[in-house]
Design a protein around this nucleic acid. Sequence first.
RNA 1: GUGGCCGUAGCUCAGUCGGUUAGAGCGCCAGGUUGUGGCCCUGGAGGUCGGGGGUUCAAGUCCCCUCGGUCACCCCA
Length: 438
Amino acid sequence: MRAAERSAGDEPLRAPSGTHDILPPESAVFEGVVARFASRARLAGYGLALTPLFEELAVFSRGVGSSTDVVTKEMYDFVDKGGRHLALRPEVTASVARAYVQHRPTLPWRVWYWGPQFRYERPQAGRYRQFWQLGAEVLGTGDPDLDVEVIELAWTFCEGERIPGLSLALNSLGDGACRPAYRERLLAFLEPLAAQLCPEHQTRYRDNPLRVLDCKRPACRDATAAAPTPLEALCPSCRTHFARVQEGLASLGIPAVVTPRLVRGLDYYTRTTFEITASALSASQDAVGGGGRYDGLVAALGGPETPGIGFSLGLDRLLLARGDDAPAPEAGLEAFVVDLTGGGAALVLTSRLRRAGVAVERAFDSRSLRAQLRMADRSGAAVALIIGPAERAAGEVRLHPLRGGEESVVAIEEVEGALRALDGAGERPRRTGNEEQA
RNA sequence: GUGGCCGUAGCUCAGUCGGUUAGAGCGCCAGGUUGUGGCCCUGGAGGUCGGGGGUUCAAGUCCCCUCGGUCACCCCA
């Protein structure tokens, strides 16, 4: 079945598999989360970085690592009309590092971001082909205090979003000094056990032995029960760094759980790595976010040796973990214009009010008064502004409160003042009956 | 990539052993009230029963294929 044939059929068009529409009113929840993250990030000195949704393939193959699943099987890559080999971004950290190399802003450089990412995987609950992330990255300092600060931002933000059952896993993977030696040691350990590993890792363990530690299949779990962990192989400076990160987290009251087998799927991590999980998510997709230090990434992309650390949070999963409390938000409308004279009066009045900063809607198609008032009621507006032939002739507007109150008539030039007055009065809850009668 | 479950109206679903013109609730539209929303009442619009093939006098219902959705494995956010 060719794609062309498939789309030529007369089946209704729908969003591609693994993507989903985020529409009102739920989209307002999404919007709110992003806005709260933005303000937290700003407090900590981060600026917004908007990098392209697609990059040269090499940004990811060299940045993320050519043996990772993300790069080998999950990338949406394509050749454009100019023959460039591009890929939709499967994550953002590598893009940020590329942007740093390209523009060389002064260090330390703190940026936050949000936007969609793409991975070609089989969709399931909490896992999409286009998914949304919030994240932050800091380049230019290897100070462990920064690790603490970055983890704190991720952690306190999740807490602030009232996600139930949060926990924080922490590990250190070592650096350029101790990791290669550890890798050899692990390989030597795995070599004689290869036949006992799960089918997938029987050959793959050579490319990326650390991943075997993280494999959830019983075969690998049993075979590696006694395997050395990166933590016990840390060199002195990595050990000191990790100790200070733990101290710092403790001093802020952040409950990190040291998890020696936490590996994570991207190759660029060095030293500190962490993952935030939520018990409300299904056991296998319980990560709402994760991150870590990547002191070699910038150099791998052709820049100078520059340490860095960051994290990203899955927006879709954040919302999923928080449950369906999606607070159907009000439209926020102040007024709804009901025009019984053909619509021209509404056209002029809504325009005038909107220019004055009043949130206002109207009906179209010259519908009946009853129909227009029904729309006004459902719109959530506080008041209907009725213009019939009589009002129009007199240069007036009838103010009809929709949530209780007395109807009144004002000169059309004074509508804004009257709305303001009503708004002021509404601040003291005055229930004048009229709502919910048995 | 592998496996389980599910496809009937915009939404949630019913549809008996295969049997007449495929139903309900919600939503939407109109009217009840010639200028007053919600509640109530009446009426209306809206369906390739996912698609194709087969069995049968007869298929929403049984069989095969296919497409789509969903959940899980794997991996990750």
